[in-house]
């Protein structure tokens, strides 16, 4: 049940913020708080995929961890499946958490190496006391078949598998409780190139065939992959969403200079598309700007106003961006 009849979101994030305390030389707090996520808002409709892209330190993984409640937010509101998610008490959170799961980047480090595949995939079912022991066992078998692993995998441990197979185990585990939302944190970045396509196909397939029709919050940096997986994309820079819109439009008509830079920096698909001289970008470095636009130090079209005033969000149809001088 959703709180308002008009809302079509499964996940609604509003004004989410989080700062980390800057540490002194010996780990003592120095008092200054460094914002990691600033006033982030977005919607994920049921069964749909939103991609979060941006460079390291842009806040995309922190945003995902706040949504997963692996980190506590400083401010903001998250509504998940009609529930006010962030203040949800532990007991109810535990119950509701079966609806939200996560697949991490590196299955070699995110799966307990001492547990068998049967335990790993069955654990979420156990935690949520789904069915009888025999029913759970049957469900684990069915899950393995769905992610393309043989039944013989049940009694083995993760280290007996290749990277691609381990990620299949991670995906089976994430889907065990029939979640409505799966957070995918760079799910193919650590995989061999020749198995990436298998896993991407599997993720597309499972979104269509899993009875709960999960939505995906996909964190990635390869824009060709994002295009394939996500109808909508949000671009993050220094903790803020600087642009968000339908993926096709965002890529063909980027309004924020950082989005343009990201697109221009993608390596060529073919040697004939090589860009001579590389993408125009000031060398990164320097502390965040104390005021004004955070991107202005690297922006080819920055003007005086960008140093004075932080750009607010401009909404243009279903496309929004933060820039004083959009293209």
């Amino acid at each position: 049940m959703t709180s308002s009849g008009a809302s079509a979101s499964l996940l609604r994030v509003e004004g989410l913020s989080k700062s980390f305390a800057a540490r002194g030389l010996f780990g003592g707090a120095r008092g200054t708080a460094v914002p990691a996520v600033r006033d982030v808002s977005f919607d994920v409709p049921p069964g749909q995929t939103l991609a979060l892209v941006g460079e390291s330190g842009s806040g995309k993984t922190t945003t995902a961890r706040l949504v997963l409640r692996l980190l506590a937010a400083d401010a903001g509101r998250v509504t998940f499946d009609g529930v006010d998610w962030l203040p949800l008490p532990a007991g109810e959170l535990r119950e509701k958490r079966r609806e939200m799961s996560v697949v991490f980047q590196d299955p070699a480090t995110s799966l307990n190496p001492r547990l068998t595949v049967e335990r790993l995939v069955g654990e979420p079912l156990e935690i949520h006391a789904v069915g009888t022991r025999a029913e759970r066992r049957e469900r684990v078998r069915a899950l393995l078949a769905r992610v393309g692993l043989p039944e013989a995998a049940l009694s083995r441990t993760p280290r007996e598998f290749s990277g691609g197979q381990r990620q299949r185990i991670g995906i089976a585990r994430a889907l065990a409780t029939e979640p409505r939302l799966v957070v995918l944190d760079e799910p193919v970045s650590a995989l061999d190139v020749s198995v990436r396509a298998q896993v991407l196909n599997l993720l597309l397939e499972l979104q269509e065939t899993t009875p709960s029709r999960p939505a995906y919050l996909f964190i990635g940096h390869d824009l060709a992959v994002v295009r394939l997986l996500a109808p909508r994309t949000a671009v993050m820079f220094r903790g803020q969403i600087v642009e968000e819109g339908p993926t096709g439009e965002l890529f063909s008509n980027p309004r924020h200079p950082y989005t343009r830079l990201l697109l221009a920096s993608q390596p060529a698909a073919h040697p004939s598309e090589r860009k001579r001289g590389g993408a125009a970008d000031a060398v990164e470095g320097g502390p965040p700007a104390p005021r004004g636009c955070a991107f202005r130090g690297r922006c080819p079209s920055a003007r005086a106003r960008c140093a004075e005033e932080e750009p607010q969000e401009t909404v243009d149809g279903d496309h929004r961006f933060r820039c004083h001088f959009p293209s």
């Binding site: 197979q165 020749s194 198995v195 396509a197 597309l204 397939e205 060709a224 295009r227 394939l228 997986l229």
Partner: peptide, 25 residues
């Protein structure tokens, strides 16, 4: 050939399946 064909490209449509290479290294 298989590696080149398995890459997502800008010409792919959203949701389109990739030409994956079966098996593992």
């Amino acid at each position: 050939r298989a590696l080149l064909a398995s890459r997502p490209t800008v010409r792919d449509l959203p949701g389109q399946r990739l030409r994956a290479i079966s098996g593992n290294v």
